[in-house]
Design a protein around this nucleic acid. Structure first.
Lengths: 365, 365
DNA sequence: CCCGCTGTTGATATCGTTTACAACGATTTA
DNA sequence: TAAATCGTTGTAAACGATATCAACAGCGGG
């Protein structure tokens, strides 16, 4: 199963003493000594360059360069009490939506000199709890997280000041924190309305568990769209599974097993869409002719599908960037009122909804 | 901590200003005071419980519990010189292969009490350089990274002792470090041989840039498979783009534009496969009848494609786990010889290669 | 009675920074 | 001319943990 190749230890590179030398990292004291100044001057050279004379500044820079000096973050953190790191906790590292969010966070925070401490809670309450404890011990300046919302009371205890918090995607159950979401009601309404406009009268919803605010909102959007189109709400057309691939697969199978099959399905999440597609292919159901499909979340692979997927696109990267901005704001002004940023979704029409087919028919008439 | 806007020197006496809430994080000193012992005893209680008497141990634990005490990682790091964090650098946070690797790393390292500092180098040399500098300053115990291999000399300077290093997926250009890869030659050879066995005589390769060792190895595997099947190597059937979606799209378009089109294509990377698929759908080319397809990297969406994708699967999570194991080993035994762990790939046959069609024909005969 | 153990505890130096404060010469102000 | 200001520098005290060392009691053996 696993091949292990052991290369002969080739110490030939360079002098043998190089490897045995305990080569300690350069400290501020060594730089000060080499530049012939006090350590305070070295510190000031980097923290407030204007306050030190030109001559000493160049001497310090030169010494720092030669010694390959980097200030110890640990010492700085200990001294000033707050570190330059931000904890990020997402429930699924493999979900492109969340990684898109992380990317947006990373871009903004890295530009502001912060380092990311990323963790994967895996939708597991215990893991989430442990992670938040670790982040607290690590002395992070702030936390951006997608809450799981299962156990009450932990958020308010672990995410207390001086740690600043921003929630993403879901409303945290226990905490009055800044929040970035997308308008889930509107996004779903638009997607379902699109299907209704294409003459579908039996539109199903494959949804996630209602413990997530996103699931609640998306179901609300579904209801509103149905109502606006004058369509009846058939309870058997609503499926609630988990937000994973399996949920979509099971849900679609349930719909296909119905005596009175829907002609269109709205899937409330990207992983579920994958499962729904698999179920459709297994049953050899033609998309969109026998079943039209619209999914929540646009993904890199959406255009490579056959047919390409019509999707309600969430700007994941911008969501992350907004969350990071919110956090930076709050760290600058801790007393500021709590804010909720709600970004808009966008319906990206491709082929899986049958829009092109419908248009073709309309032209024929 | 006086992180609040009280700028005037409040000299940190602590309990002096009784007005506001006790939002200070509990320190070892407070625990010691509350338990009526010295700070040394508190430290020992957690570091070496056996060395402290039963009575004091319970007193300390009780005090720690009440005060919600968590030892400051920064202080510990400063004192002992090495932190409990490991830096992880990957070139693309949105690529499921790399996130799978991270997941494997996370599982192992978190179980061993380490925290992950994850960064995204974005295949950008400058970013990679900055990230490694940050990790150095952060005092990480080790680094697990996917090297970009562009600028010479930075790895050996930034990843010097006492930082331990493990490379993943690609051979670092400048550094003699532990490494975990997959057998890329063998994986590609198997995939291409599969196509050859299905009677394809014109098999193209959509590859990445040869600066990556993975691209070199995969091209070698392609050559070997062709040679073993007695097929000529037509240079125009080898395309070398980037390892991204665009590369696959351009490459497939180039193949489709050929006067003498190949009947099968091996795509050397998951993102490129996405692009190749998009090109095929746009040109309305039937898979596998007009073009058979096998891709490197199996992905969550592979089974949801139409037709499902035949792929050479890399055990991404195990790769990450192996890398983490290697790092833990090395931190325990720094003088150990450098090791390369090479994991096996697995060919997952689905429909895009035309295997089922070929089998059906064979039965007809 | 002294010596050397063992088991438990406290006092304290230390890690590398930041920062309040003092020191100092040079200049400006009263 | 004395005093106040300014710009620049050094001194030293934190920050919170760990680890070394000494102190001390209790105890058995010589």
């Amino acid at each position: 199963m696993r091949k292990v190749a052991t290369k002969p230890s080739d110490n030939g590179q360079g002098d043998g003493s190089a490897s045995s030398t305990p080569k300690r990292v350069a400290t501020i004291k060594k730089v000060a000594h080499r530049a012939g100044v006090s350590i305070a001057t070295v510190s000031r050279t980097f923290a407030d360059p204007a306050s030190v004379s030109d001559e000493l500044r160049v001497r310090v820079h030169e010494a720092a360069r030669v010694l390959n000096y980097r200030a110890s973050r640990a010492a700085r953190t200990l001294r000033v009490g707050t570190s330059q790191t931000v904890g990020v906790v997402i429930p699924d590292l493999q979900n492109p939506f969340f990684t898109g969010v992380v990317r947006g966070i990373d871009l903004v925070l890295q530009a502001n000199g912060y380092t990311l401490l990323l963790s994967n809670s895996d939708e597991d309450t215990t893991r989430e709890h442990n992670i938040l404890e670790t982040l607290q011990a690590e002395g992070v300046a702030g936390v951006i997280f997608v809450p799981i919302n299962r156990s009450r009371g932990t958020y308010s205890r672990l995410l207390a000041p001086p740690i600043h918090v921003v929630a993403v995607d879901r409303l945290p159950s226990d905490l009055d924190a800044d929040l970035v979401t997308v308008d889930n009601v509107d996004g779903t309404r638009t997607g379902v309305a699109h299907l209704a406009a294409l003459e579908h009268r039996e539109i199903a919803l494959l949804n996630g568990p209602l413990r997530h605010s996103t699931a609640i909102d998306r179901e609300e959007g579904y209801r509103q769209a149905l109502g606006a189109a004058g369509l009846p709400l058939r309870p058997e057309l609503i499926y609630r599974g988990d937000f994973r691939e399996r949920g979509g697969y099971e849900g679609m199978k349930a719909m296909l097993a119905l005596r009175h099959r829907p002609t269109a399905v709205f899937v409330a999440n990207n992983l579920m869409t994958l499962g729904a597609l698999r179920a459709l292919h297994e049953a050899a159901v033609k998309i969109p002719d026998e079943m039209a499909l619209v999914g929540f979340d646009d993904m890199p692979w959406a255009t490579s599908l056959n047919p390409p997927l019509t999707a309600v696109s969430q700007p994941s990267q911008e969501i992350g960037a907004a969350a990071a901005d919110l956090l930076l704001d709050r760290m600058a002004q801790p007393e500021r009122a709590v804010r909720h940023v709600i970004l808009r979704t966008q319906l990206v029409v491709r082929a899986s909804c049958g829009a092109s087919r419908a248009r073709a028919q309309a032209i024929q008439k």
